[in-house]
Design a protein around this nucleic acid. Sequence first.
DNA 1: GGCCAGGTGTACC
DNA 2: GGTACACATGGC
Length: 306
Amino acid sequence: MTARFPVSDYDLAATLDSGQVFRWQRSGESWEGVVGSDWFQLRSVPGFLEAASGRPDARWDRLRDFLGLEDPLGYICGTFPQDPPMQAALSACPGLRLLRQDPWECLASFLLSSTKQIVQIRQCVDLLCRRFGEPVAVPSGCPPAHRFPDPERLAQAGEAALRECKLGFRARYLAGTALRISEATLDLESLQDRPTAEVREALMSLPGVGRKIADCVLLFAYRRQEAFPVDVWILRALRGLYFPNRRPKLRTLMRFAETHFGPHAGYAQQYLFHHVRTHLGRAAFAKPKRGRFRNVLTSLKPHGSH
DNA sequence: GGCCAGGTGTACC
DNA sequence: GGTACACATGGC
């Protein structure tokens, strides 16, 4: 029921609370969440991560995969550019890791993310799991926990029922995407071994999935560390930190990111994202004129691709 | 009460 | 090609 994973440089809080995953909860010194069909409780002690499970035959191998323990973090961070913004982000949150998520849960979660705050995404994901997810075993005294609902279950539930989980206009996207997946028009498992560009194109053919969400799934689930999701935070950060007084377009910034941040650009992105969100804040960057900034993430999806 | 949130789809020019 | 706006809901 318990295990210890030897690891150094693992910041559990930064990792589980940096907007990669949306249903891990802090409980005192521990973090509680579900991986696959298993509830786990995690705790950081010097040199180790300690884990407890909700049942004797828990899938420890899946937890190990999920945690990204095998990443050579020192080496990866060593490939980041030596410029001041990147080094500041790096030293602000040492031990931040990329997780390896289940593609469906990751895709469905980020489908809900558009123009929502992270706290609201968590709320929606929680409602979806409570309402449609199978219960999993938890130790007595712990609040109930659930699997993330299958595509089949969400497709069957339909748009109206999904709307009741406060998804708003995103309910149509989730229902449509769940249907595509459950009808096996698109097989998420088989994408695992396909080239990154092909995976991205396949994901972007789904309703409600554009470049940004596709890149999140590429990075957080398919572990393509070259994927560099650009959301409003990263956009502001790149402009403010690397191009002050200019106003490069999104495409320009994406080309810049592709080369500037190296082969593990996605990792660098996560450090920048977490740093600006937790330490610098929105006020750190000049607000653009109304009506321009909000819409700058548009027009990356090829026309008529769904 | 108004602005904004880990965007995307669509209708315009 | 690009630009503007709708889309639901809630935190601050």
